[in-house]
Write a protein that binds this DNA or RNA. Structure first.
Length: 278
DNA sequence: CATATGTCCTGAGAGC
DNA sequence: TGCTCTCAGGACATAT
């Protein structure tokens, strides 16, 4: 998403509006009157990302923070449908006239924050970014936790940027059972988790994300992602494991969320494995 | 303090 | 066919 909206850096926002929507409005801060008042005439000086939030930096030093959650899209092109158009920024740019936030379910949020608020409400609350996190950083935060590793990877204060789909793919690549408690993971397993995190997320970004069967996710130009073609476990319950060709992918529920994994080649822990093989 | 659970939302799909 | 029910999951509030 960040890469998709980079072309609007240097353009000016003419105004912001909240289009008529038959649905309940999304969380917008401040209200559209004050939001528009503060962004009107501002130049977009940069686009960033903090965890799963898209940050739009303005000349005034205010920041538009977009949190797409499940079904939110940041678009420069026309949206999939007008029903769910939530926020529209009219731009001065020749190439791109508008920046949209579209959200089918409406769980996403858009906030305009001052630099102090960005620090307090975003940066101070997030762990190291998933793409950059080191083994030491992840271990120091989680190695004593009794939570299951899959659940812990979704904790944005531990590591920022991993969602449900990618947690499953990461643990499959690392060869670790998602039910393993953090405090039972070996040093080698933490190493594999961090490496797998980097690999999976870099590949997913390279393929512009995952457009699932519901077709919701689109890139900034309303195109499909491609990483769904590389999912090895997510949404593949009952299919044969592509790695060991022995296990069938299982779907379980952890913390009210689906987890997909191969029971044959994702090991619960070194200790568990040793006990079993003896 | 750490961890667990409930809540919000809409549309797709299942089952009858 | 049309109704009702369940499910998807990210972040935060509230409970344990």
């Amino acid at each position: 998403m960040r890469r998709g909206v980079l072309p609007v850096v240097g353009t000016r926002i003419l105004f912001a509006e909240q289009p008529e929507c038959r649905l309940r409005p999304i969380l917008l801060e401040p209200d559209i009157y004050n939001f528009d008042r503060r962004v009107r005439g501002q130049e977009i000086v940069g686009i960033g990302r903090r965890g799963k939030r898209v940050m739009i930096y303005l000349g005034s030093e205010d920041v538009i923070v977009i949190e797409p959650r499940m079904t939110g899209l940041v678009l420069l092109a026309d949206p999939p449908g007008l029903d769910h158009l939530r926020i529209r920024l009219q731009l001065e740019g020749r190439k791109h006239e508008q920046l949209l936030f579209w959200d089918r379910r409406g769980l996403g949020t858009v906030r305009l924050l001052s630099p102090d608020e960005v620090r307090e409400r975003i940066e101070d609350r997030l762990g190291p970014d998933a793409l950059e996190i080191t083994e030491l950083q992840l271990k120091s935060k989680l190695c004593e936790s009794r939570r299951e590793i899959k659940v812990a990877l979704l904790d944005q204060t531990a590591v920022a940027g991993i969602g449900n789909l990618y947690a499953a793919e990461i643990l499959f690549l690392a060869g670790i059972d998602p039910r393993t408690c953090c405090n039972r993971l070996s040093a080698a397993q933490w190493r594999r988790i961090v490496d797998a995190t980097h690999v999976v997320l870099r590949e997913a970004i390279r393929h512009e994300g995952s457009t699932l069967s519901d077709g919701t996710y689109r890139n900034a130009l309303n195109g499909e992602g491609g990483y769904q073609n590389y999912h090895l476990v997510y949404d593949r319950a009952d299919q044969m494991c592509s790695r060991c060709k022995k296990g069938r992918i299982r779907r379980i529920v952890q913390a009210q969320r689906s987890t997909f994994f191969c029971p044959k080649c994702q090991l619960r822990s070194r200790l568990h494995h040793t006990v079993r093989t003896i």
